[in-house]
């Protein structure tokens, strides 16, 4: 089954996040990997080792860019230095789509370096969608926005998170990077049914899926990306695939990173879920 217009009709399979501890292994062993996701900001540098590694990866693999600092939801205007560098990187990687988060993180030029949740209001949705459209026009690449995990909700919200996500992507006419781990984490923190979330978004807009591990604490769950994917997240992933079809999927593992082979093995579990779901359709 082909993918959708929001990922450029590509069918990328299972990807892995490109992380520093794995550079040596990947460059020396050249393992078979469908694609690598890079954190854009790690490579938006002028020169040096990061770009040397990236160019070597690009010789062998397909790369998709994932950002952490566009901050579509910030009230500030875009940081033009950031966008210019991002565009330069887009041209270098030829990424078929680009993702960043549905969040805010900077105010008056001060950066939190966090992915902060927004009040789910119609006014915020409109503002955010306008910024997504402006970024897409400037970067000239399809954009998918990712739902973030969150630990707080605002009194000001006028709708659920999935209604907000749907409103934004419809207004911006953009794709969704559906992070099923983030949905699970937020569902536990905010007492909603994660299946309601997955069932009630525009499925044809899901261009990519993220899966990851998390950590349970006494009163809440934290999105730590330092564990294998847990069973409830795999089940939610299978459900999402049933609804959205065969979609490029990426395993995130960002802390206490094990060997490349272990990460790869975990990522490839997603293949089995996909095959089973697709076969049952």
């Amino acid at each position: 089954m082909p993918s959708n217009e929001f990922n450029g009709f590509t069918d990328y399979g299972i990807g892995i996040g490109l992380r520093v501890p794995h550079y040596r292994h990947i460059l020396a062993k050249k393992p078979v990997v469908d694609w690598f996701e890079i954190i854009s900001e790690n490579f938006m540098v002028d020169s040096g080792r990061p770009l040397e590694v990236l160019d070597q990866i690009l010789e062998q693999y397909r790369v998709v860019q994932h950002g952490v600092a566009i901050y579509f939801g910030s009230a500030d205007d875009f940081d033009r230095t950031h966008l210019n560098r991002l565009k330069r990187l887009v041209r270098r990687t030829n990424t078929p789509w680009l993702s960043d988060h549905l969040c805010w993180g900077s105010v008056d030029g001060r950066y939190t370096h966090d992915l902060l949740p927004m009040p789910y209001t119609f006014a915020v949705a409109k503002h955010t969608a306008e910024k997504i459209k402006a970024a897409r026009d400037f970067l000239e690449v399809p954009i998918c926005v990712e739902n973030v995990s969150s630990y707080a909700e605002f009194h000001a919200s006028e709708m659920t998170e999935w209604e907000f996500l749907s409103e934004v992507v419809e207004l911006a006419d953009c794709g969704i990077l559906l992070d099923v781990n983030n949905i699970y984490v937020s569902s536990k923190n905010h007492n909603f049914d994660p299946y309601d979330y997955v069932n009630n978004i525009p499925h044809h807009r899901v261009g990519q899926i993220h899966i990851a591990g998390h950590s349970k604490f006494e009163k809440y769950i934290l999105d730590t990306h330092d564990h294998p994917v847990l069973d409830p997240v795999w089940k939610l992933y299978a459900h999402a695939i049933k609804l959205v079809g065969n979609t490029a999927t990426l395993l995130e593992w960002d802390d206490r990173i094990p060997s490349f082979d272990e990460v790869h093995h975990e990522a490839l579990k997603a293949d089995k879920f996909r095959e089973n779901v697709i076969a049952a359709r």
Binding site: V68, L115, V148, S149, N182, A212, T224, H225, D254
Partner: peptide, 11 residues
């Protein structure tokens, strides 16, 4: 001597 990676919203 580890290198820092700027990751997604890992805590």
């Amino acid at each position: 001597d580890g290198l820092r990676g700027e990751a997604s919203n890992a805590v």
